[in-house]
Every structure is written in structure tokens, then in C-alpha cells.
């Protein structure tokens, strides 16, 4: 097996004295889509923050494509091919669509290429290119965010709660885009609360609770246990 694109070993992280990650182990093979599931407060978003360089771990190691990265800044990682789409609105609401796209060129792609990719995948963004991103619907904002994943041609894509606050129809569209990106060979780690939606596009899945990964496996195996984990097992 080739070197995994992301390898996390015994990762701990804390907000002040409050430990949120308690020894996370997780591997994303090259070219695979891994779904990271789990209830609220399990530490999923914190894990993504540590991987993307927004937060410093207290101990443990992260290897990106076999390279040990500790203390790298988010902007450096972004320029090296790690694209992170954080939870919630990951666009700049007071900039127009086109200005948002312009900033995506910081990842090392020419602005024209960004525009071309974004508009060809999402013609709706072209119609709205002079509109402020914050005045678009949540789904359109998320499309704009996904445009960055498409245009920046990442080595590893981190997606956090793509579906938050969005209607299922829109979520489905977004996940079709995720599947398309995956087909081009991009490795993806997707954090999701809608287990079934995420599992449909993933090759592997992991479940986090209480700051550790408690289960890993094929999507079908994980799907079988998710209802218990999220809605409670007590009948």
C-alpha cells in the first residue's frame, strides 16, 4: 500500500484545560473518501482544525503524504494543496461571488482558471457573480464554497458539515459534487452529521465519540450502527 495522504497518530488537543481530542488515530488512504461521523461535541470539527493548522495539538503527530507537519500555518498548508472547507459559512459574506472566487486563487491557481472551473460546474454562480455572497441562499453559498474545492485542485480536501442548515435536496446536490471531485482522484475527509448521506459517497467511515475514534469500517457496517449512536440505543 502506498503512503496514506493523511495519517493521524495518537492526537490530543485541548481548549485551555479542557481536552477535546483524546488520542485520535485515523488514516485516509490516497484517493479515498473517508466519512467521519459522530454526535455533536465528539471533537470532529476540532480534529479538522488541528489538521488544517488552525489549532495546535498538545501531543501526537500528523503526517500529510508521509511528511510530518507540526506547527505549519493554515495559509502555508493551503498553498501546498490542503483545502479546508470549514463548518458553516465558509465564504466571505460581504464580498461578491467574483471577489470570493478571486481570493481562491491564493491556493496557487490563476484567477481565470478559478472562474472557469466555478462557472462551468455551477452556472448559477455566473448569474450571481456580482451579488454579495451573504445575500445568496445557504445552498448557493455552499456551492461557492465547493467551487474552491473544485478549482484549487487539492491533494487532500477536508469538508466540515457541508449539510449544516441546508435542505436535503441541496445537500444531495452538494454530495454529487463531492462524488465528482472524488472521481478526479482527490482524497477527501468529510465530517458529516447526516450519516447516510455521507456514507453514500465514501469508501471508508469512522465514528468519533468523546474525542476518540470508536469505530472504523466499510460504509455498510457503520450505517448499521449509526442510528444507535446518534438517536440513542435505549428503546
Amino acid at each position: 500500500m502506498s503512503v496514506p495522504i493523511l495519517d493521524i497518530i495518537d492526537l490530543h488537543a485541548a481548549y485551555g484545560r479542557i481536552e477535546v481530542l483524546r488520542g485520535v488515530n485515523l488514516t485516509v488512504p490516497k484517493g479515498a473518501v473517508v466519512a467521519l461521523l459522530g454526535p455533536n461535541g465528539a471533537g470532529k470539527s476540532t480534529l479538522l482544525k488541528v489538521i488544517s493548522g488552525q489549532m495546535q495539538q498538545t501531543s501526537g503527530d500528523i503526517h500529510l503524504a508521509g511528511i510530518h507537519v507540526t506547527g505549519a500555518k493554515p495559509d502555508d498548508l493551503a498553498r501546498l494543496g490542503l483545502t479546508t472547507i470549514p463548518e458553516g459559512r465558509s465564504v466571505f459574506p460581504n464580498l461578491t461571488v467574483e471577489e470570493n472566487l478571486l481570493l481562491m486563487s491564493y491556493a496557487g491557481v490563476a484567477p481565470e482558471a478559478v472562474f472557469d472551473t466555478a462557472y462551468s460546474y455551477f452556472p448559477r454562480l455566473h448569474e450571481r457573480r456580482f451579488q454579495l455572497a451573504g445575500t445568496m441562499s445557504g445552498g448557493e453559498q455552499q456551492m461557492l464554497a465547493m467551487a474552491r474545492a473544485l478549482a484549487s485542485d487539492p491533494a487532500l480536501l477536508l469538508l466540515d458539515e457541508l449539510s449544516m442548515g441546508l435542505a436535503p435536496l441541496i445537500v444531495d446536490e452538494l454530495y454529487e459534487t463531492v462524488a465528482k471531485i472524488a472521481e478526479t482522484g482527490v482524497s477527501i475527509l468529510v465530517v458529516e452529521q447526516f450519516a447516510r448521506t455521507a456514507l453514500r459517497v465514501s469508501d471508508y467511515a469512522a465514528v468519533m465519540t468523546g474525542g476518540t475514534v470508536v469505530a472504523t469500517g466499510e460504509p455498510d457496517e457503520i450505517n448499521a450502527i449509526m442510528a444507535d449512536v446518534i438517536l440513542g440505543g435505549a428503546a
Binding site: S52, G53, Q54, K73, P74, D75, A78, R79, T83, T84, P86, S90, F92, P93, N94, L95, E99, L102, L103, M104, S105, Y106, A107, G108, P111, R148, S152
Partner: peptide
């Protein structure tokens, strides 16, 4: 672009970092 980034950093400097700015 850098001016756009200035306005963006008001909204969310952390996100700008994730964009590579």
C-alpha cells in the same frame, strides 16, 4: 486581489488563511 483580501480579513481572517491568503 490583496485589497479584496483586506476586506475579507475583516469578515474572517481565519478563513482567509484557509484560502491560502
Amino acid at each position: 486581489r490583496v485589497g479584496t483580501a483586506m476586506r475579507a480579513s475583516v469578515d474572517n481572517a481565519e478563513l482567509l488563511g484557509l484560502y491560502g491568503g
